[in-house]
């Protein structure tokens, strides 16, 4: 996942349908999970009928996170995925990912919320 997700033109529902139409993702769309994740991410139901291009940066980012979570992978590469979110959501998203102990995460971020005791930190600033 990258920060500037410039995804499908058209409605968010169409975007979801498209992704879960891929052979690799068939039958992975769990509508119960979708509702739960949406509530957790502070997304209203009517966002599904909105045009993806017209969403705000934060909303786009949350849709990206939503898709990533629904796909339920073992390995996530997360490039600045919380950059446009408010502090509470940053914390919530980071905590959620960090709490899954069987996941492998590679996180690139400026957000302190991703820091925790057991995450291996590579400080790029000092190594330049």
């Amino acid at each position: 996942m990258v920060q500037d997700t410039d995804l499908e033109e058209g409605k968010v529902t169409n975007l979801l349908n498209e992704i879960f139409f891929y052979r690799a993702n068939k039958d992975k769309l769990d509508s119960e999970k979708l509702r739960i994740f949406m509530r957790e991410l502070g997304l209203e139901d009517d966002i599904l009928d909105k045009n993806f291009q017209e969403l705000s940066g934060g909303e786009k980012q949350r849709i990206g996170i939503l898709i990533a979570l629904l796909l339920n992978r073992d390995i996530y590469l997360l490039d600045e995925v919380t950059s446009a979110l408010d502090v509470n959501l940053k914390k919530k998203v980071a905590d959620y990912f960090l709490a899954r102990e069987n996941w492998t995460l590679l996180v690139i971020s400026h957000d302190r919320e991703w820091e925790c005791d057991w995450i291996e930190k590579i400080d790029l600033e000092n190594k330049s």
């Binding site: 996942m1 990258v2 500037d4 997700t5 410039d6 995804l7 499908e8 033109e9 498209e18 992704i19 139409f21 891929y22 052979r23 690799a24 993702n25 898709i67 990533a68 796909l71 590469l77």
Partner: peptide, 22 residues
Amino acid sequence: RNENRYLYNLSIGADMYEAVLP
């Protein structure tokens, strides 16, 4: 112009044909 979107499609599980469909 929009290679990111194509790469994103690949990264979330599309094969090449599925990724170019849009």
